[in-house]
Measured scan of single mutants.
Amino acid sequence: SIVTKIISIVQERQNMDDGAPVKTRDIADAAGLSIYQVRLYLEQLHDVGVLEKVNAGKGVPGLWRLL
């Protein structure tokens, strides 16, 4: 499923980069989806406690990390 793919992308990127959070844009590119589509999935995963959003604010790139 797309959700499983997104989780594995975040996991893979974090492992490659010493646990650093992953940008929404990088996840979207790797999943082959638009940034808006991916954001909806990321928000859902956040709501159920799978991911945390590391930063927030208007015009700030979203950074995500697995919990």
Rank of each mutant, 00 (worst) to 15 (best):
E52S: 06
V60A: 13
Q44A: 14
G49Y: 03
A20V: 07
K53C: 07
A28K: 01
K53I: 05
A56N: 12
K23R: 12
Q37K: 12
R13Y: 11
Q44D: 08
V10D: 00
K53T: 03
K58F: 09
Y36T: 12
W64M: 00
L42T: 11
R65K: 09
P61M: 13
L42W: 02
D26M: 05
V38P: 00
I6C: 03
L66G: 01
A56R: 07
Q37L: 14
L63T: 08
T4S: 13
K58Y: 07
G32V: 03
V50N: 01
E52G: 07
K58A: 12
A30L: 07
K58C: 13
R39Y: 10
I7H: 02
V10R: 05
I35Y: 09
I7C: 05
E12Y: 13
Q37N: 06
G59Y: 06
Q11L: 11
A31R: 01
L66T: 06
I35V: 11
G62H: 15
H46Q: 11
T24L: 03
R65C: 07
R39I: 13
I7W: 05
R25W: 07
S1A: 13
G57M: 06
Q11K: 13
G57T: 07
V60Y: 12
N15W: 11
V50P: 03
G59W: 05
G49S: 02
A20R: 13
A30R: 07
P21W: 15
I9W: 06
Y41E: 01
R13D: 00
P21D: 03
A56H: 11
I2Y: 07
S1L: 11
A31Y: 02
K5Y: 08
V48I: 15
A30I: 06
A28I: 02
L33V: 05
S8G: 10
M16I: 09
V54Q: 02
A30M: 08
V60E: 15
E52I: 07
A28D: 04
V48N: 12
I27Q: 15
D18K: 12
T24F: 02
G32D: 14
A31H: 01
G49C: 04
D47N: 13
V22I: 07
D47Q: 15
L40I: 14
V60N: 13
A31V: 14
L51I: 09
S34G: 07
S34L: 04
R13K: 12
A56D: 12
M16G: 08
D29G: 07
Q11H: 10
L67M: 11
A56Q: 11
S34W: 04
D18V: 07
G62M: 14
M16T: 08
V38M: 06
K58L: 11
V22F: 09
Q37D: 08
L67V: 14
I27D: 02
L33Q: 02
I7Y: 05
G19T: 05
I7G: 00
T24G: 03
Q37T: 12
D18Y: 13
I2G: 02
K5S: 05
N15P: 02
E52A: 06
I35N: 15
D26F: 08
L66M: 09
L42V: 02
H46P: 03
R25I: 09
A31M: 14
I6M: 03
K53W: 08
G62L: 15
V60C: 13
Q44V: 11
K23L: 06
K58V: 10
K23H: 10
G57Y: 06
I27S: 01
A56K: 09
I9Q: 01
A56Y: 10
L67A: 15
S8L: 12
G62Y: 15
G62W: 12
D29S: 12
L33W: 03
V3N: 04
M16L: 11
I27P: 00
K5L: 13
L51Y: 01
A31C: 12
L66A: 04
A31P: 01
Q11P: 00
Y41V: 12
Y36A: 13
K5E: 05
Y41T: 04
I35M: 12
A56G: 12
V50G: 00
I27M: 01
D17N: 15
A56V: 11
R13E: 04
G19S: 05
Q14A: 07
L51Q: 01
S8T: 10
V54G: 01
Q14M: 14
A20T: 07
D17W: 14
I35R: 04
I2L: 09
E12F: 12
I9R: 01
H46A: 15
R65P: 00
G57H: 07
E43H: 09
V54L: 05
G59P: 04
N55K: 09
Q37I: 15
G57A: 07
I7D: 00
S1P: 07
S8M: 12
K5I: 08
Q11W: 15
V60P: 10
M16D: 07
L66H: 04
L67Y: 11
R39P: 00
L40P: 10
D17K: 13
S1H: 12
Q44M: 15
I27K: 00
L45F: 01
V22R: 01
G49K: 04
R13Q: 07
S34I: 04
G19I: 03
G32E: 05
G62R: 08
L45D: 00
D17T: 15
S34C: 06
T4W: 14
T24Q: 03
M16Y: 08
S1I: 10
Q11M: 12
I2E: 03
W64P: 10
N15D: 09
K5N: 06
V54H: 03
H46C: 15
K58D: 14
L66W: 08
I7Q: 02
Q14G: 05
L67R: 13
T4C: 15
R65Y: 10
D47K: 15
H46F: 09
A28T: 01
I7L: 10
L63E: 13
R25G: 09
K23Y: 05
Q11C: 12
Q11N: 08
K23V: 03
L33K: 02
L63M: 13
E43I: 07
S8R: 14
I6H: 00
D29Q: 13
L40A: 10
L67P: 12
P21V: 06
V50L: 10
L42R: 00
A30W: 05
A20C: 08
D18R: 12
R13L: 15
Q14W: 04
S34Q: 06
G19E: 04
T24D: 12
G62S: 14
D18N: 15
D18M: 11
I9E: 01
Y36V: 11
L63V: 05
R39G: 08
D18F: 12
E52N: 03
V38G: 02
K58T: 11
E12W: 14
I2Q: 04
V38R: 00
G32P: 01
V10M: 15
T4G: 10
G62T: 15
Q37M: 14
Q11G: 08
I2A: 04
A56E: 09
I35Q: 05
Y36P: 11
A31Q: 02
D18A: 11
D26E: 08
L67I: 14
E43S: 06
V22Q: 05
R39E: 12
A56W: 08
K53R: 10
R39T: 14
G49V: 03
G49T: 02
R65G: 04
R25N: 08
K23Q: 08
G49A: 02
A20W: 05
I6V: 03
E52M: 08
V38Q: 00
L63Q: 09
K5V: 07
A20Q: 11
E12V: 08
Y41F: 09
V60H: 13
M16A: 12
R13G: 03
V10L: 15
V22E: 01
G62Q: 14
Y36S: 12
R25V: 10
L45R: 00
L33R: 02
T4Q: 14
N15A: 14
W64S: 00
D26G: 01
K53P: 05
D47C: 14
R13V: 05
M16W: 07
N15M: 13
I6A: 01
H46W: 12
V10A: 02
S8V: 06
L66S: 03
Q11E: 08
V54P: 01
H46K: 12
T4H: 13
K58P: 13
E43D: 08
L66E: 02
N15K: 12
N15Y: 10
L42N: 00
D18G: 14
H46L: 11
Q44E: 09
S8F: 13
S8C: 15
K23G: 09
R65I: 10
A30Q: 08
G32L: 04
G57K: 09
M16N: 10
L45Q: 00
E52F: 04
V10I: 15
E43M: 09
T24C: 04
G32I: 02
K53M: 06
L33C: 04
P61E: 15
Q14T: 08
N15H: 10
R39L: 15
G32C: 06
Y36C: 10
D18W: 10
E43Q: 11
V50F: 05
L63I: 04
A56S: 11
I6S: 00
I35F: 08
K5D: 04
D29L: 12
S34M: 04
V50R: 05
D29F: 11
E12I: 10
R65A: 07
L42F: 01
L67W: 09
R39K: 11
I6P: 00
L45N: 00
V48K: 13
V48F: 13
V54D: 02
Q37F: 11
G57I: 06
T4A: 14
L40C: 12
P21F: 08
N15R: 12
V22G: 01
G62P: 15
G32W: 03
Q14V: 05
K23M: 09
D26V: 08
L66Y: 12
S34H: 06
N15E: 11
P61T: 12
V3H: 10
A30G: 07
G59I: 04
G57W: 05
D47I: 12
